[in-house]
């Protein structure tokens, strides 16, 4: 997730203080990860340097927290561009887990256990998200579903790999020899 663009998006709804922005970000996007204050101010400084946001003239500063930020026309254009751009489809988990499985097989360790443990952890997370979906509002449901579909894809890969573990072991150890 691009923090600068998300911040721009939040500013598109109206001028805000850094503190407000952090709160708004955490409420809406905390599924990703809460922002640190340092992060939000560093992001705002960069956006300001690039001319994408400016300080609100109407409210003169009294310390850093009193600064109010406004999106510029360039900022709105950049936001628009980002909003309409598709994301690189990236296989995020696979590379790490695949490396672990291959290493476990190479080292003669229990790769099945690695996969089973990861599967259990994925299921636990999917249960949490399902509960949030059942009890939460529409936005919670939308965010949970997105995360759930991704976790499901990983989980299916884990199960398939577990089912093929003997073939994979043969291939991996043959390569090593």
């Amino acid at each position: 997730m691009s923090v600068p663009h998300t911040v721009l998006g939040l500013l598109r709804t109206g001028p805000r203080h850094g503190y407000d922005l952090k709160k708004a970000y955490d409420t809406r996007f905390a599924h990703a990860r809460p922002l640190r204050y340092g992060q939000i101010y560093a992001t705002l400084a960069r956006l300001q340097r690039d001319g994408l946001v400016i300080l609100d003239a109407e409210e003169p500063g009294q310390g850093p927290d009193r600064k109010r930020y406004v999106i510029t026309e360039d900022g709105a254009t950049e936001l628009e561009r980002w909003l309409h751009e598709t994301e690189e489809p990236e296989p995020y988990l696979h590379s790490t887990l695949f490396a672990k499985v291959v290493l476990a097989l190479l080292l003669g360790e229990d790769a099945r256990a690695t996969l089973d443990a990861q599967r259990a952890r994925h299921m636990a997370r999917m249960r949490e998200l399902t509960e949030l979906k059942r009890t939460g509002d529409t936005v919670d449901q939308l965010l949970s579903d997105h995360a759930l579909f991704h976790l499901e894809a990983d989980l299916r890969w884990i199960e398939l790999t577990a089912a093929r573990i003997d073939r994979l072991r043969t291939a991996v150890t043959a390569d090593a020899g």
Partner: peptide, 11 residues
């Protein structure tokens, strides 16, 4: 279906 299984308390 893992998404169905996720409705259960345990699997």
């Amino acid at each position: 279906d893992p998404r169905v299984a996720a409705y259960a308390q345990r699997d």
